[in-house]
């Protein structure tokens, strides 16, 4: 079981590395959304700092929506996915490996890029640690929940808008606790409560979502 997990993880990371241009596009998208926002306001420091949690998280959500569409599509089109379905190993393990690789190649990059962006928005430096931690705990959940939506819409070639309708309502808790932790950190309040809740969501996601993804993939291929 672990063997298949590592094999799929390694293969997807290798693919992400070979196609690193795509990763750069996602990162640029994330940076652009955040960087253009101040241009639409009068860029007063206090306002920017106040809206920065919402802004960062909305940018993460949009970037996730764009990148999630590629999560299973190439494997679906070239026939690898049906080989996954026929594997004697549990499909949920393969699904978890794919989401993990996806997260390392997108979510983790946002986490690494975020300090630069929040400092650009004028967020005090003491909040940066909590902000990174909240993204670190929140983005994997986005991948896990989003994986269910992508798996369900696999048979539809252009499912982008539909996908947003399916998964954005499910992202509400992550958005609230993620932005809540940032907000608390910025105004100097303890953020531990929100971070614990993000961790709890992640724990629930890791245990339940792979099975739901596996079921969704089977429905889509049948």
């Amino acid at each position: 079981m672990l063997g298949v997990f590592w094999a799929v993880l390694r293969r997807d990371l290798l693919l992400a590395f070979r196609q690193r241009g795509v990763l750069v596009h996602h990162l640029l998208f994330f940076v652009l959304v955040v960087a253009l926002f101040p241009l639409g306001t009068r860029a007063e420091g206090a306002i920017l700092v106040a809206v920065s949690p919402a802004l960062i998280w909305m940018a993460v959500l949009l970037a996730a929506l764009l990148s999630l569409q590629r999560l299973f599509r190439p494997d679906y089109e070239d026939g690898t996915l049906e080989q996954y379905l026929l594997s004697p190993e549990p499909l949920a393990v393969i699904a978890l490996a794919k989401v993990t690789a996806y997260w390392i190649a997108s979510g983790l990059i946002f986490v690494v890029a975020s300090p630069l962006l929040v400092l650009l928005l004028g967020v005090p430096a003491h909040a940066v640690g909590v902000i990174m931690l909240s993204l670190l705990l929140g983005t994997p959940t986005l991948g896990l929940v989003g994986g269910i939506g992508t798996a369900l819409t696999l048979s539809l070639p252009r499912a982008g808008l539909l996908l947003s309708l399916l998964i954005f309502p499910l992202y509400v808790p992550v958005l609230i606790f993620g932005a809540g932790a940032m907000q608390a950190a910025i105004i100097g309040l303890p953020a531990a409560g929100a971070l614990y809740l993000l961790g709890a969501l992640l724990a629930l996601g890791v245990t339940a979502a792979p099975w739901a993804i596996a079921a969704a993939l089977k429905i889509s291929l049948e």
């Binding site: 929940v145 269910i148 369900l152 048979s155 399916l166 499910l170 739901a212 079921a215 969704a216 429905i219 889509s220 049948e222």
Partner: peptide, 12 residues
Amino acid sequence: TAARACALLSVV
């Protein structure tokens, strides 16, 4: 397929 996909989505 549509009905089964909706079933899973409602459970999630």
